[in-house]
Amino acid sequence: MSVIILVTVMLPLPAGEFDAYLFDCDGTIADSMPIHFRAWQLALEEWGAEFPEELFYAWGGRTPTSVIEDLNVRQGLAMPVDVVDKRREQIFQELLPTVAAVPEVLEHIEDAYGKVPFAVVSGSSRESVTASLTTLGLLDRFEVMVCAGDYLNGKPDPECFLAAAKLLNVAPERCLVFEDTDFGMQSAAAAGMAAVRVPPPWQRHP
């Protein structure tokens, strides 16, 4: 009888020592991007809007309200932003029990917990991030949460990461960011922070 052993390769970190780890949530800590995409599809189809998967991943890291506003402009629609966002979040919460952690990132969380402080820096709502981390049993790992509504300018602007560094009382250049999106990586670079790119779902789930 053959035995299949699955080996997870730990994500390599940049050289040097860091005083804090800052994690994006969706697609970085939580393997939730496919669930979010499904929630978007179901919420938007009620208004006749389209959100292709390629565009969904290209816009990863943006706040939901800015996504809906741009879809309105692009498609000549007048979707009520708050209503659509609330519906999207409701569907996501219904699908959330199926979410799992990204193994490669979870390894770093478990390895560094208690050695350096952690923060979550997300474009999602605090409600959504809290629900995801609670489902994964990781909520107590994070000293700081910076979510949509806690800052004015979303990724790729550096504001959210700089806010997290300030709350942790750690210099930006001493922070290491874990991110899965282009906007997130650009945001970290603009904040003067080193960053680790987390592979997208289609690379982690071939």
Score class of each variant (00 low, 15 high):
151 Y>Q: 01
171 A>P: 09
155 K>Q: 05
175 C>P: 12
159 E>M: 07
134 T>M: 06
139 L>G: 01
139 L>Y: 14
157 D>E: 13
169 N>Y: 03
175 C>Y: 08
162 L>F: 03
142 F>S: 02
172 P>H: 12
164 A>D: 04
168 L>T: 09
154 G>V: 00
142 F>P: 02
139 L>K: 13
168 L>P: 02
169 N>G: 09
146 V>G: 00
147 C>A: 13
176 L>K: 11
163 A>S: 04
148 A>W: 03
148 A>H: 08
177 V>D: 05
173 E>I: 10
153 N>V: 00
135 T>H: 07
148 A>C: 13
159 E>T: 08
170 V>W: 07
134 T>I: 06
149 G>C: 06
163 A>N: 03
146 V>T: 02
140 D>A: 14
169 N>S: 15
143 E>Q: 14
166 K>M: 04
141 R>M: 14
161 F>C: 07
154 G>C: 11
135 T>S: 14
146 V>K: 00
140 D>Q: 14
152 L>Q: 11
145 M>R: 09
158 P>S: 06
166 K>A: 13
152 L>D: 07
167 L>D: 05
139 L>Q: 12
152 L>F: 00
174 R>S: 14
172 P>T: 15
169 N>A: 15
138 L>R: 07
166 K>N: 06
167 L>P: 00
177 V>P: 01
154 G>L: 02
158 P>H: 07
137 G>R: 11
139 L>V: 15
136 L>P: 04
154 G>W: 02
174 R>A: 15
172 P>Q: 15
134 T>L: 08
147 C>K: 03
146 V>L: 01
147 C>V: 03
163 A>Y: 00
143 E>W: 05
161 F>H: 09
157 D>K: 04
156 P>S: 02
146 V>S: 00
175 C>S: 12
170 V>A: 12
137 G>Y: 10
134 T>H: 06
139 L>T: 10
165 A>H: 08
150 D>Y: 01
156 P>Q: 03
133 L>I: 09
